[in-house]
Every structure is written in structure tokens, then in C-alpha cells.
Design a protein around this nucleic acid. Structure first.
Lengths: 212, 212
DNA sequence: ATGCTATCTGAACACGCGTTCATATCAAGC
DNA sequence: GCTTGATATGAACGCGTGTTCAGATAGCAT
């Protein structure tokens, strides 16, 4: 017995990654064995090494692929004018995108420590790049006087943490629809950073006085 | 060679839990072996079984102990009057308490899946109890008309997720002091749920008209 | 000083781990 | 139809796993 009928690298390769993703998300990287992954694919453990040099690379590839997808998808998203609308676009995008990929999100935030330093840093950079696109929106809003943010970096992290939280309880057939969840979170994010009207009036008053 | 000089259950017991906590937080439950824990304590692996029936109980005890501490500490916290002040008290308490216990927080959110169902449910109940104390504040504020939240349950989870995020980047000797971080998060939480002034005015107008 | 018990050792058990490799079979090109 | 390369097997390697247990030692009560 050796090669299986109908076996192709084009088929087995993706199945290996899919099985690894599912199992890593369910039980954690360290708790999943290569033999378990192989069993899910319907193959012996040795065959996995045709598709990955080792176990860690399997994890790293999944994480890197996911981060690249996030960055690409956000880059492709159509951006409206003005920081307020952009913030709404970002929050809605983030929630929708992440809820469609619960397993990737899970391992992205849980299994980073299982990577060796170089791999870890590569992912960290990608994540920071994504965070920066949100921070840029906050900064612009601050410059234009429509946001009132104490510290853009901290606020960025706080908002993303809040948005990520949704993946830990959302169920597609639950009490709230996806679009409703999007709306609630988006509103909350907006209110957390928007310049209050009374502050805005005060700002205009002061600006008027300075112009005299 | 057998019993060590100066050895006591009162001493070794806590050291076992401390070592387990540190190692679980650093490498993950599944990635840490009983022999590693024993080595950190300065003992052979077999001796650990004088202090825990098995590895999983070691994890569960740490998690349960932590959750009980949270509940007790919040119960002991002095509560001011009014939902607005109570929300600030809660956010400041949560941030301070969790930043003082980064390792417990880490394993509390990462290693739940390594528990068997009964243990998992016990912890889930304790967590829900804690969440309920925040939701109660939001509900009261909504009834009194000082908060404007769409869904108290969802908002509770969103706020806690946001607050928990702080543990993933805060460094005690970093750019921002603990009290400053508390303030920023507390302000953000407040703004995210407070009734806007224009809405409040509108509400009073309508109430006045209805009273005619 | 003696005996008792709490505490720990060190070896053992059965098993699973990640990874390698010689070998075998299938799919495709000539 | 035959050859060649891609794809998979299954056994093996050395090592580590959680857990148990008989035996040894330290501290304490008498």
C-alpha cells in the first residue's frame, strides 16, 4: 500500500491546512498532534511532511495567511469621506470579516506564543499595520476636530479589543443578527470617540474669539 | 535520598501553584509538563501528586481561585451612588485588579478549553456572575435615563472585552501610568454608554409635553 | 531516644510525540 | 505500454508524557 487513488497535492494540501486550522482552534496548537491532523485528512502522519517542513510552519502559515487576508480585504474596501464615516466602515468591516473567520481569529490571538521569535515578529508587524489603519482614522478625526480622543494609540487598541470580543460570544443563529451587532458596536465606537456637541460649540466659540 | 530538609506542605503547596501559574501563563497548559513544574519547585514530578490529584485540577484550582478573588474583591469594593459613578468605579476596579494579576487573567481567557465540561461550567457561572454586576449598573442607568444603551447584555460584553484588552499591552514602566490608563478607559466607557445631552433635552421636552 | 507520619525520591509503566526514510503505488507524458 | 516523478505508507527512532508506588528520610510527639 502506498499512494492513494485520486490523490493530488492540489487536494491534499488545502485539506491539511483546513484540518490543522480546525483542530488548532478547537484544542490549541500544543494539544494537537500531527497524527490527529493526518487522521482528519485521512492520511498517515508522514505524508504531512510533503506539505509542511514541520508542525510550527503549519501554524505560522495559517496565521500569516489570515493576516494577509485582513490587510488585503481592508485595502480593497471602499472608503467613504470623512473620519466619522470611515470609522463606521472600519468597525463594520472588522466585525463582519472576523465573524466570518472565527477559527482564524481564535488561533491568531491564542497561539502567537507558540511561534519562534522571527515568525512572531513578522506577524506582529502585520498586526501593527492593521492597527495603524484604524489609528490613522482616529488621528484625522482628531485633527479635524470631530473626534475627542485622549490617546490615539491606546484608543485604537481599546476599540479593536472591544470589536474582537464579539467573536467570543456571537452565534449566527442567536438573538441578534450580524447587521444589528455591527450597528450596535459601530454606534458604541462612534460615541466613545466623537467630539461631544457641547465641546464642539465651546471650541467654535473660542475660535471665534481668537479671530477678533 | 527522600524527604528534604525544611520541607513542609505549607511551603511546597503554594510554590507548586505559583510555578504552575507562571509556566501555564508563559507557555500554555498543554505545553507545560509536570516535570517542568516540579523542576521549578525543586522537586521530583511524583511529589506534585501530594498537592494535586492530577494536572487538570492544578489548572482548575488556579482558575477558580482567581475568579473567586475577582468576585470577592468587587463585593468588597465601596460603591458610590448613581450608575455613572458606579460605572467609573467598576472600570477602574476592573483595570487595576486585572493589571495586578496578568498571569491569572491570561490563563483565565486562554485555557478554559483545556477543562472538562463540569469544571468549565463552574467557571462560566462565576464569570457570568461578574458580568451581571456590570450589566446591573447599565440597566439601572438605563432606567434612570442617564445611559443610552441599545442592548445591556451586549454592551456589558463589549465593555469588558475592551477593558480586558489592556492586559495585552500594558507595561508598568511604559509611557502611561496605571491611573492615567484607568482614566482614559473609564472616560471611554462612560462616553460609549452615556445619554447624549441633546437626547436628554429632547427626552425632557417630551416628558413636559406629556405632562400638560 | 524511639516511633510515627508527613514528605520526597527514583524508577517504572504504557503510551504518544515529531520526524525520517526506505518502499510501494498511482498518474501522467512519451 | 513503459518510464518517470509525485504521492503515500508504515515502521522505526529517540525522547518525553502523566501517573503510580515502594522505599527512604526528616520532623515531631512522646
Amino acid at each position: 500500500m502506498a499512494r492513494k487513488t485520486g490523490s493530488h497535492s492540489d487536494i491534499t494540501g488545502p485539506r491539511v491546512r483546513a484540518a490543522a486550522l480546525r483542530l488548532f482552534a478547537a484544542h490549541g496548537f500544543a494539544a494537537v498532534s500531527m497524527r490527529q491532523i493526518a487522521a482528519e485528512v485521512g492520511v498517515q502522519a508522514g505524508a504531512l511532511y510533503l506539505y509542511t517542513p514541520d508542525k510550527q510552519s503549519l501554524l505560522f502559515d495559517l496565521l500569516r495567511e489570515h493576516m494577509q487576508e485582513v490587510l488585503d480585504a481592508w485595502a480593497a474596501e471602499e472608503k467613504p469621506d470623512g473620519p466619522i464615516n470611515q470609522l463606521e466602515t472600519f468597525t463594520r468591516f472588522h466585525i463582519r470579516f472576523h465573524l466570518e473567520r472565527p477559527e482564524q481569529v481564535f488561533i491568531s490571538y491564542m497561539e502567537l506564543r507558540n511561534l519562534e521569535q522571527d515568525n512572531f515578529k513578522a506577524l506582529e508587524n502585520m498586526r501593527r499595520q492593521y492597527e495603524n489603519s484604524l489609528e490613522a482614522i482616529l488621528k484625522r478625526g482628531q485633527d479635524e476636530g470631530v473626534f475627542d480622543v485622549d490617546d490615539t494609540k491606546l484608543t485604537t487598541l481599546a476599540l479593536i479589543a472591544m470589536l474582537n470580543g464579539v467573536t467570543s460570544w456571537y452565534k449566527p443563529d442567536g438573538r441578534l443578527s450580524l447587521s444589528r451587532v455591527e450597528t450596535i458596536y459601530s454606534d458604541m465606537a462612534g460615541k466613545a470617540v466623537r467630539m461631544p456637541r457641547w465641546k464642539e460649540r465651546q471650541r467654535k466659540l473660542e475660535a471665534g474669539r481668537a479671530a477678533e
